[in-house]
Amino acid sequence: MTERYTFGGSLNAITCHAWNKDRSQIALSPNNNEIHIYSRELNWKLVDVLNQHDLRVMDIDWARNTNRIVSCAADRNAYVWSQGEDGKWKPTLVLLRINRAATCVKWSPSENKFAVGSGARLISVCYFESENDWWVSKHIKKPIRSTITSLDWHPNNALLVAGSTDYKVRVFSAYIKDIEDQPTPTPWGNRMTLGHLMAEFKNAANTGGGWIHSVSFSGDGNRICWVGHDSCINIADSTNGNIIRCKTEHLPFLSCVWISLDSVLVAGHSCVPLIFSLDGNKINFSAKLDTTQKKESSGISAMRIFQSLDRNSRSENSDSFIESIHQNAISCVRIYSGDKLSCKKISTSGTDGQLVIWDLDSKLINSFKGLNLDGK
């Protein structure tokens, strides 16, 4: 069963969303400077609106065990939100020390630090300084030369993978000796000083590539997957040095996440979540979660439809309704149940204002139930 949630008819885009530990609450941003907290009781109920940011919220992450929310925005700020005894969320300012928009944020697995990417061509690794009761940051700068678009942590809490608009994917050490023990060696390398470049990959070096939209460490930390604006899926393996690339005919993907040791889920401008699996030195298509898109099942891909419109000098298709659950690009993908080693359910949100929970156990979904977050 696939669950579909909307906002009482509102068409506001959802920029990003994040779940609490037991999935009883969700934090999401309706494409503005606010963060809305909903609680699932009999129906979804709006319980708080966090409006400390001055400009559009770019990303949110919810720490499962410590129950803290971190947010970043185009106003160059990040806040760590803690819930008080009255149930209301209180912000603590993070000293990012950046002069451009903060674009992405991610808690580390141990939740003792988080990383913030920005347009300032650097990564801020932030941790709590108890003496002054605030969050401070240390910067990773070299050899970054462009905006950081996506971040993900290695399971060892020390390594960080970053994608950027210079077509590069880089693995850095984000180890902070002041707050944690020395990490053990990994296949990515032994040197773990903060900011040390462990690996660097260029997105499709032979074909021009494109901006990196999303990066993800595998559950065991030995592989990374990334997707860019060239509609390709890329996987790099640290154990053997292999880099595998799969060119697709879909529109560009905006998100990717590992759902098992050998499978990744991707989604983006084609409006449908897709599963690809690693088979030796090849990445093969495995499943499409949304089976309502008859145009693709008949052999006409979203990319070919777009090319047809361009050739015929038409600005839009004659159909105003897309035969898929999501009616516009999927911008955010989160694991809802399970983890990267064995994911059971995922959630997607997008610019159509919908939030959809997909059951991966059944692979191909034929039905969904439509509900509103406000219970209507």
Results as ranks from 00 to 15, higher is better:
residue 269 H to N: 14
residue 196 H to G: 00
residue 267 A to Q: 07
residue 250 H to S: 07
residue 246 C to P: 03
residue 234 N to A: 01
residue 206 N to M: 03
residue 190 N to E: 14
residue 185 P to W: 01
residue 202 K to G: 04
residue 174 A to I: 07
residue 270 S to G: 11
residue 211 W to P: 00
residue 201 F to M: 12
residue 253 F to M: 07
residue 272 V to P: 01
residue 234 N to Q: 09
residue 273 P to N: 13
residue 195 G to F: 02
residue 170 R to Q: 14
residue 247 K to G: 05
residue 244 I to Y: 06
residue 273 P to K: 15
residue 218 S to G: 05
residue 258 W to I: 01
residue 245 R to V: 13
residue 242 N to A: 11
residue 213 H to S: 09
residue 218 S to L: 08
residue 243 I to E: 01
residue 236 A to G: 04
residue 229 H to D: 14
residue 179 I to G: 08
residue 226 W to D: 05
residue 168 K to N: 14
residue 269 H to S: 13
residue 176 I to M: 13
residue 228 G to P: 11
residue 194 L to P: 10
residue 218 S to A: 10
residue 192 M to A: 09
residue 165 T to V: 06
residue 184 T to A: 15
residue 241 G to M: 01
residue 211 W to L: 11
residue 170 R to A: 06
residue 233 I to W: 02
residue 182 Q to I: 15
residue 164 S to V: 09
residue 268 G to Q: 06
residue 215 V to L: 05
residue 263 S to A: 12
residue 224 I to L: 07
residue 197 L to K: 04
residue 208 G to F: 03
residue 184 T to M: 14
residue 172 F to H: 03
residue 205 A to V: 03
residue 204 A to W: 10
residue 178 D to I: 02
residue 249 E to I: 08
residue 253 F to Q: 07
residue 256 C to N: 03
residue 272 V to E: 15
residue 249 E to F: 11
residue 238 S to V: 07
residue 242 N to L: 09
residue 260 S to F: 02
residue 261 L to R: 09
residue 206 N to G: 00
residue 204 A to F: 11
residue 211 W to H: 12
residue 205 A to Q: 14
residue 264 V to F: 08
residue 165 T to F: 10
residue 174 A to L: 04
residue 222 N to P: 00
residue 192 M to D: 00
residue 220 D to H: 12
residue 222 N to Y: 12
residue 242 N to D: 10
residue 230 D to C: 02
residue 255 S to C: 15
residue 223 R to G: 05
residue 242 N to V: 08
residue 240 N to E: 11
residue 214 S to T: 06
residue 255 S to D: 03
residue 200 E to C: 10
residue 180 E to T: 07
residue 233 I to N: 00
residue 205 A to I: 01
residue 241 G to S: 11
residue 254 L to E: 15
residue 219 G to L: 09
residue 202 K to C: 10
residue 197 L to R: 06
residue 217 F to W: 13
residue 205 A to T: 07
residue 239 T to P: 05
residue 202 K to W: 04
residue 236 A to L: 11
residue 249 E to T: 15
residue 200 E to N: 10
residue 187 P to K: 07
residue 244 I to V: 14
residue 252 P to G: 07
residue 184 T to G: 04
residue 261 L to N: 10
residue 247 K to E: 11
residue 243 I to C: 13
residue 248 T to S: 09
residue 208 G to W: 08
residue 176 I to D: 14
residue 216 S to D: 14
residue 188 W to T: 05
residue 201 F to R: 10
residue 241 G to I: 05
residue 225 C to Q: 03
residue 206 N to F: 01
residue 164 S to A: 15
residue 165 T to Y: 07
residue 172 F to Y: 13
residue 264 V to L: 06
residue 184 T to Y: 08
residue 226 W to P: 01
residue 231 S to N: 13
residue 254 L to V: 01
residue 253 F to Y: 11
residue 193 T to W: 06
residue 244 I to Q: 06
residue 209 G to W: 00
residue 222 N to E: 05
residue 247 K to N: 08
residue 224 I to Y: 06
residue 170 R to L: 06
residue 199 A to D: 12
residue 230 D to K: 12
residue 237 D to C: 04
residue 175 Y to P: 00
residue 198 M to K: 15
residue 235 I to R: 06
residue 181 D to I: 08
residue 254 L to K: 12
residue 201 F to D: 03
residue 250 H to G: 02
residue 192 M to N: 14
residue 184 T to D: 15
residue 181 D to H: 05
residue 230 D to N: 15
residue 166 D to V: 05
residue 223 R to V: 12
residue 173 S to A: 03
residue 165 T to I: 10
